[in-house]
């Protein structure tokens, strides 16, 4: 699938196994986190848009970017350990400062066959 192509044949899943394959080795927990903020212009745009109660596109983008970056960091870690799949992936989010998003992605790096 597309996801595994982007990540260089690394299988990502949030189930605790890889269907149709067998886990042969465990490499432990891998994690990636990122804190991102948008520039002031986007913040102002978001507060204006918040007057109409619609989608805040700037913040959706921010969330998307943070997720992608955190996942990439996790993938780099998993590859370093020689894994070809990351299972049991979880997303955890929190807010640290106003207009900033923190996303923490973690999972178990494994080798499947």
């Amino acid at each position: 699938m597309e996801t595994s192509q982007i990540t260089g044949k690394l299988i990502l899943t949030n189930i605790d196994r890889v269907p149709g394959k067998e886990i042969v080795e465990h490499y432990g927990l891998v994690a990636g986190s990122t804190i991102r903020a948008k520039h002031v212009g986007k913040d102002i745009m978001a507060s204006i848009k918040n007057f109409f109660g619609g989608e805040l596109t700037g913040y959706t983008e921010l969330l998307n970017e943070s997720r992608v970056e955190a996942t990439e960091r996790m993938i780099v870690q998993a590859k370093k350990r020689g894994a070809n799949a990351v299972i049991n992936i979880r997303f955890s989010t929190s807010s640290i400062a106003q207009g900033a998003a923190e996303i923490y992605v973690y999972g178990t790096a494994v080798k499947v066959e």
Binding site: T3, P19, K49, F52, G53, L63
Partner: peptide, 28 residues
């Protein structure tokens, strides 16, 4: 639930995500 149909063969798997940020109007 995390059950995959055991009768059928799985060709590929991958993570999918969807995210959205929604605001609310001053009245709310």
């Amino acid at each position: 639930s995390d059950t995959v149909d055991p009768e059928r063969q799985v060709e590929a798997i991958g993570m999918v995500t969807g995210q959205v940020v929604i605001g609310s109007d001053p009245f709310k």
